[in-house]
Lab assay of single mutants.
Amino acid sequence: MAEQVALSRTQVCGILREELFQGDAFHQSDTHIFIIMGASGDLAKKKIYPTIWWLFRDGLLPENTFIVGYARSRLTVADIRKQSEPFFKATPEEKLKLEDFFARNSYVAGQYDDAASYQRLNSHMNALHLGSQANRLFYLALPPTVYEAVTKNIHESCMSQIGWNRIIVEKPFGRDLQSSDRLSNHISSLFREDQIYRIDHYLGKEMVQNLMVLRFANRIFGPIWNRDNIACVILTFKEPFGTEGRGGYFDEFGIIRDVMQNHLLQMLCLVAMEKPASTNSDDVRDEKVKVLKCISEVQANNVVLGQYVGNPDGEGEATKGYLDDPTVPRGSTTATFAAVVLYVENERWDGVPFILRCGKALNERKAEVRLQFHDVAGDIFHQQCKRNELVIRVQPNEAVYTKMMTKKPGMFFNPEESELDLTYGNRYKNVKLPDAYERLILDVFCGSQMHFVRSDELREAWRIFTPLLHQIELEKPKPIPYIYGSRGPTEADELMKRVGFQYEGTYKWVNP
Rank of each mutant, 00 (worst) to 15 (best):
S8F: 04
V12R: 07
L16D: 13
R17D: 15
E19R: 15
F21T: 12
G23H: 15
G23V: 11
D24G: 09
A25M: 15
F26I: 06
F26Y: 13
S29Y: 12
T31W: 08
F34P: 02
F34K: 11
I36H: 02
G38L: 00
G41S: 03
L43I: 03
A44L: 00
A44H: 00
K46P: 02
K47D: 00
T51W: 03
D58V: 14
I67H: 00
I67F: 09
S73N: 09
V77W: 15
D79M: 07
K82H: 10
Q83M: 04
E85D: 07
K89S: 11
K95Y: 11
L96G: 11
L96D: 12
E99L: 13
D100A: 10
F101N: 02
F102T: 04
R104I: 13
N105C: 13
G110W: 04
D114W: 10
A116W: 13
A116H: 12
S117W: 13
Y118Q: 06
Y118C: 11
Q119P: 13
H124M: 10
M125L: 09
L128I: 14
S132F: 08
R136W: 08
L140K: 03
P144A: 11
V146G: 10
E148N: 07
V150P: 04
I154A: 13
H155N: 15
H155Y: 13
E156V: 11
S157Y: 14
M159Q: 11
I162P: 06
W164M: 07
N165A: 14
N165Y: 11
I167W: 03
E170C: 01
P172Y: 01
D176L: 02
L177C: 05
L177K: 11
S179Y: 04
S180L: 12
R182A: 11
N185W: 09
L190G: 05
R192S: 05
R192W: 13
R198S: 03
R198N: 04
I199Q: 08
I199M: 07
I199D: 03
Q209D: 09
L211H: 06
M212H: 04
N218E: 00
F221A: 09
I224C: 14
W225G: 03
D228L: 09
I230P: 00
I230R: 00
C232T: 07
V233Y: 02
T236W: 03
K238C: 06
G245Y: 07
G248L: 13
E252S: 11
G254Y: 02
